[in-house]
Simulated scan of single mutants.
Amino acid sequence: MATHPGPIRKLWYQWKMMQLPWRKQWLIGFDLKGNTYWEFKDALHSHRHRRIVKYSVWTHHGDVNVPPQWVQWLRHTRYEAPSIAEQQADVYRQDRMKVLAAQADARWAAKPSALDAPDKGQPVHMLESRELDGKSEGQDRIEKEQPEEEKTRKRTRTEPKDSPWKQQAKGNPGDAWQPAAWAPPPRRRT
């Protein structure tokens, strides 16, 4: 219930909760939204009691939300009806869970993703080479030790005339292949 019931309503609840022998139905409890939960004797089975919920007068039927503890009680999964303190603790738990979920989402969003653009700066793993201007650290150190003539000679690389890479560039052998039209074979007479 959003607001606590007044003294007259509390007296009415206490009166309806009494399981007097002539009474056919009695109030078991209510939830924080104002729904009341009733139990009554089944006409066919005297040993079993039926359980129902009566929604608050101010609630539209499309907006009715029965808490899980009361659903368990309605389906006879739970023997004892939930108390108000238990329902309030569950509401507090749900609010706390929402705060923790929002914090976890914020932490997850702060971590870099593999799907991010390269300019966002992915962390470099220790096993990968750290390239500086297209060169690795070891390659940069070797080039500093070599004279300028050797550096230019290394950069101008010529491929041999009979390179297999140039031959493959002409085309693949199956590039000109086309499937033949299908013609059915003559039918055998039986």
Rank of each mutant, 00 (worst) to 15 (best):
P82V: 06
A85G: 05
W70Y: 01
K24M: 01
V64A: 12
D105R: 00
H125A: 15
V64N: 14
K41S: 12
Y92M: 11
E39G: 04
W70D: 07
H125P: 11
H45W: 12
S83L: 13
Q69T: 01
V91F: 00
R48P: 00
R93T: 07
K98Q: 13
A104C: 08
L32Q: 15
K120V: 01
M126E: 05
P123Q: 10
R93N: 07
A110K: 11
R23D: 06
R50I: 13
P112M: 09
V64W: 15
V124S: 13
K111F: 10
H61F: 12
Q122N: 12
Q122I: 04
V99S: 02
L74P: 00
P112D: 04
L100P: 01
D95G: 09
R78L: 14
E86C: 02
Q87R: 03
E86R: 02
K41A: 09
D90I: 01
R78E: 09
S46W: 14
G29F: 01
R51L: 10
H47I: 03
R50G: 02
Q72G: 08
N65V: 15
R50W: 09
G121N: 02
W108I: 01
N65L: 15
Q87Y: 08
P123R: 11
H76G: 02
Q122A: 14
N65R: 15
R50T: 03
R48L: 14
K120H: 10
D63Y: 13
H49R: 11
A102G: 07
G62C: 04
Q103E: 11
R107K: 15
V124A: 14
R96E: 05
V71C: 03
R107S: 09
A102P: 04
G29H: 00
R51W: 15
K54V: 13
K41C: 06
A106P: 04
H76C: 06
Y92N: 11
T77K: 14
W73S: 05
W73F: 11
G121M: 04
R48W: 15
M126A: 10
A106V: 01
L115F: 06
M97E: 08
V99N: 10
V53G: 14
L27R: 01
V53P: 00
K111T: 06
I52A: 05
V53A: 13
I52N: 08
A81I: 09
L27T: 07
H49Q: 07
A104D: 03
N65Y: 14
Q94K: 12
K111W: 08
R96V: 08
W108E: 07
R75C: 07
A81D: 05
H76M: 14
Q25I: 06
N35L: 08
T77S: 15
F30L: 01
R107Y: 09
D90V: 06
L44C: 09
A110S: 11
N35S: 04
R107H: 07
T77H: 15
E39H: 04
K120M: 03
V91E: 05
A109H: 07
A85N: 07
V57Y: 10
R48D: 02
A106R: 06
L100M: 11
H60I: 00
A110H: 12
W70C: 06
R51S: 07
R51N: 13
A109V: 02
K24F: 08
R75H: 14
T59K: 03
L100K: 04
K120S: 05
I28V: 14
Q103M: 12
F40Q: 02
